[in-house]
Amino acid sequence: MERGRLFQRRRNCRFCQEKIPIDFKDVGLLRNFLTERGRIVPRRISGNCMRHQRVLTVAIKRARTIAMVGYAEER
C-alpha cells in the first residue's frame, strides 16, 4: 500500500493544460471526476488545480440537480 504511494507522481490539472471548458451538461467529462459510487474525486487524486476543482464541483452539483449525474450510485 505504502509502495504505491511512493511512486505517485504529481499530476497536473487537465483543465489548465488542455483548456477544455467545464460544462455541467458534459456528462462524459464530469464522469471522469466521479468515483463509481458517484462521489467527487478529491483534488489530491485528480490533480486538478484549486480553481478548476471549484468550477468542476459546481458543474457536478448542477448535473446532479438535473438528474444527469446521480447523488449516490447503488452498489
Partner: peptide, 9 residues
C-alpha cells in the same frame, strides 16, 4: 476502496 478506484485517467 473508493479513493483507490477514484484515480483519474
Amino acid at each position: 476502496r473508493e479513493v483507490d478506484r477514484g484515480r483519474v485517467q
